[in-house]
């Protein structure tokens, strides 16, 4: 669907594990790895990357759902609409006029939306991009029949397990870690940067309290809009929070 294909590349990145994967599952359609045509039939597990951004994609995802036993959507685009969902906050027609010489050739929906807005999904794997180990976990869990070991918890948990010193407390930075779904291994805080929320909001994301705290220590409302409206800005919890701080 609509994406940069980076999440598919994560699968190709699984160099050593790819062999084991090839033995355990029969990969029949993988656009980034092979140009073989899409086979007909039904599939045990379908991984879908990207958001629903055009009318054709909407058709296609309905078809995919119908022929898939398990549908797992991967990446920030597929789970929240992705960075392209920033258009949801603006006038889509105007964007088309500004960007394209002949807007009438472009067939695009006004909003970029996650797959789950259109069809039921069995699992949403978050991330921009997704984490390789988590992807293998989802596939393994599907093969052996266990619940994927992917907790819906804050990035803070990963920071603390790694022993990373909190950038909010010790450096005074804005960090979305407390309200963001874990999975990246606390990548940014480990490099002394606040979390950008690439994995989207976690369950029970108390964005309001985080914003109040940041405003209380001198951040502006515009800072809050920017913080919450980024990679996963169209995810409901983040969208709601950024809208609260709009002028």
């Amino acid at each position: 669907m609509a994406s940069c294909d980076g999440c598919q590349l994560t699968l190709l990145d699984c160099e050593d594990e790819l062999l084991a994967l090839g033995e355990a599952v029969d990969i029949v359609h993988f656009p980034e790895a092979s140009s073989a045509l899409r086979p007909q039939g039904r599939f045990d597990l379908t991984l879908v990357e990207g958001s629903i951004s055009t009318p054709e994609q909407l058709e296609e995802i309905r078809h995919i759902r119908a022929v898939s036993h398990a549908l797992v959507v991967i990446g920030a685009c597929a789970t929240s609409g992705g960075v392209q969902a920033l258009r949801n906050f603006a006038d889509h027609e105007q964007f088309m006029r500004v960007v394209y010489a002949t807007p009438s050739y472009v067939s695009s929906l006004a909003d970029s939306t996650p797959i789950s807005a259109h069809v039921p999904v069995d699992f949403e794997l978050r991330g921009c991009p997704i984490d390789k180990a988590q992807l293998l976990e989802v596939i393994t869990a599907s093969v052996v029949g266990r619940k994927p070991g992917i907790p819906n918890e804050a990035v803070c948990m990963e920071c603390k397990r790694r022993g990373v010193v909190c950038v909010m407390v010790a450096r005074g930075q804005t960090c979305l870690g407390p309200v963001t779904h874990a999975g990246c291994g606390a990548l940014c805080p480990a490099y002394d940067r606040g979390c950008y929320g690439c994995f989207g909001p976690r369950e029970s994301a108390n964005t309001g309290s985080l914003a109040t705290w940041e405003l209380g220590r001198g951040r502006s409302k515009a800072d809050m809009v920017r913080a919450f409206r980024l990679i996963t800005g169209a995810a409901p919890a983040f969208e709601h929070e950024s809208k609260r701080h709009e002028p």
Binding site: T140, A154, M157, C166, G177
Partner: peptide, 28 residues
């Protein structure tokens, strides 16, 4: 209303002992 439920307090707490257990394996 203020709590982020992020778990930081429990992780820095020197007595908190809760843990989760998971089976880690690659495919079959």
């Amino acid at each position: 209303e203020r709590c982020l439920a992020c778990g930081n307090c429990t992780q820095v707490c020197p007595t908190c002992f809760c843990f989760d257990v998971k089976d880690v394996s690659l495919l079959a």
